[in-house]
Design a protein around this nucleic acid. Sequence first.
DNA 1: AGAATAAGGTCAACCAGGTTGTCTACCTTG
DNA 2: CAAGGTAGACAACCTGGTTGACCTTATTCT
Lengths: 149, 149
Amino acid sequence: MEPVPMLLAMTYRAMGDQFHDRLRQIGLEPLRPAHGYVFRFLKEKRATTVDIGQHLGVTKQAAAKIVSELDEWGYVLREPHPTDKRAQYVTLTTKGRDYLKFADNLWADLEAEMAEAIGDDTLATIRRGLAAYLRHVHGEDQPGLRPVW
Amino acid sequence: MEPVPMLLAMTYRAMGDQFHDRLRQIGLEPLRPAHGYVFRFLKEKRATTVDIGQHLGVTKQAAAKIVSELDEWGYVLREPHPTDKRAQYVTLTTKGRDYLKFADNLWADLEAEMAEAIGDDTLATIRRGLAAYLRHVHGEDQPGLRPVW
DNA sequence: AGAATAAGGTCAACCAGGTTGTCTACCTTG
DNA sequence: CAAGGTAGACAACCTGGTTGACCTTATTCT
């Protein structure tokens, strides 16, 4: 009997691989998951590199590396912080926002296919079940994403 | 709304972290997930380093590194292959088998707690749902575990 | 049988994605 | 206004993988 974590990991991989494949089929360069998480984070709030590192659960240095990649590729730019001369806000460029929108659609597609394969209700139960478990383990405070990837 | 893969990843982490913590509490040295997967694999079949690499989804060199660690720590030993003078069988020592048994119990505990937190039926649905999805994606041929870790 | 090719294992160089540690410039608080 | 904390850059290092070359033994193909 497969242990549950194995199922989780394999499903995660399977979805991620599909995502990656389709992105490439379309010719969009497939960034790493961490990049996607940064996009999603930046859509919500203006954030500094340190904020990003915290959200990702990595050191600020690691976050800085990711940010400067994204900058180099034109998905993001750093602008001076209005009041704090040390800090910089990292913000999504149009290219970044477009990528995110596209990726979100793709995720939705994949999820829809999953729903079709295993049933809407089953998928809904999985969602609720996992979310409930996470609440049970961590209480209300999310621990950041932390490198699974 | 959280994307599903995120839920999968976070749950995987959460369970893995708990496993790790408890193992350490008890004083058992916490090996990495890959080691555990090797144990589970070796319990079933006699295997060479190459087999292990294939099962794990990594190169034989990476597998060799893992195996020699396990050997060094006494969980495993290499014995000459009866008919093929190039090859060596990797087999579990008693220490390795004990570790595996212990770990399996621990996993069972964690899973039981999960069941308690979210309901037996929900957990069962998750199991079945994920397994069904994996079949749907890969057909019958398992692709090996591949580093999620 | 003998030659070409494939496969197991090891060694070595390298790479990616993190880490820690240190430094400077700036901010905040007593 | 001095003391301590924080954003960010730079550098050294670690881990867990990779690729490539090689030797030895097996297998396959004339």
